[in-house]
Amino acid sequence: MKLVGIAALLLALPGLASAQELTGTLKKIKETGVITLGHRESSVPFSYIDNNAKVVGYAMEICGKIVDAVKTDLKMEKLDVRLLPVTSSTRIPLIANGTIDLECGSTTNNAERQKQVAYTNTHFLTASAFVSKKAKNLMKIEDLKGKTVVSTAGTTNMKQLVEANAAKNLGMTVLPAKDHAAAFLLVELDRADAFVMDDILLASLVASSKDPAAYQLSAEAFSLPEPYGIMLRKDDAPFKALADKTTSALYKSPEGAALFKKWFQSPIPPNGINLNVPMNAMLKKMLEKPTDSADPAAY
């Protein structure tokens, strides 16, 4: 990682960059005068649509900084920013075929996925936990013995749930759901006892539910916290170097902590809910020593 970091720094030196022939995404942006950001529609608080039909969120602000940096670096007077909504099914093809240049959302960065796409510095860390109704009194993974548990189909959380079920011999009935909203609905309607997902997404689902006081998050997690990153095209070193340099400077500055406070510890649109996510040691380290590592142990 260090070597990559040094290489990235070298490439990002302004004199060097402008002297070089532009390639990849930067060349495309310079030629077309347009940068396209992929965003999510309901990934609170990372990237979502607020009550004014505007795309907002923590990841969107970070992407905004990268856009500014691109504009300065390419010495462009005007840079058109286009927004395109993406889903978990469309984000990879749209990155690969050049429709979007950055995916600003809550995409987990792991080694498997790095074969296909690249990520800039991690902007959040989340562990797999579960939510259930308080009345059911489920706090630990052991408590799920014999229960019906739902997770979103095709997520790493589902994989961890299936593994824990087999390893601890819990005899759970595992239900797949199409998306987070559908999975949460199953818990709300008592079709499932618990929903296993990234803890931050669970917190935002609970906060925006009809009766937030009726739910609780588990005390125990299924995994080490995994990193979220902004996704960009693979094998595009100059663009990645610029994005890394920008995000790294942002996270280390007081602005990084302020941004975190704004989206995770203050009331956010559309309903003015406060997610109250504490800044733990790992998140602190993530901001102090930015890295794009996919390895949870690196944090």
Partner: peptide
């Protein structure tokens, strides 16, 4: 189709 989508989520080999 659901399995196909799961496969692309796990592996990112969508095509």
């Amino acid at each position: 189709t659901a399995r196909t989508r799961a496969m692309q989520e796990y592996s990112f080999q969508v095509f």
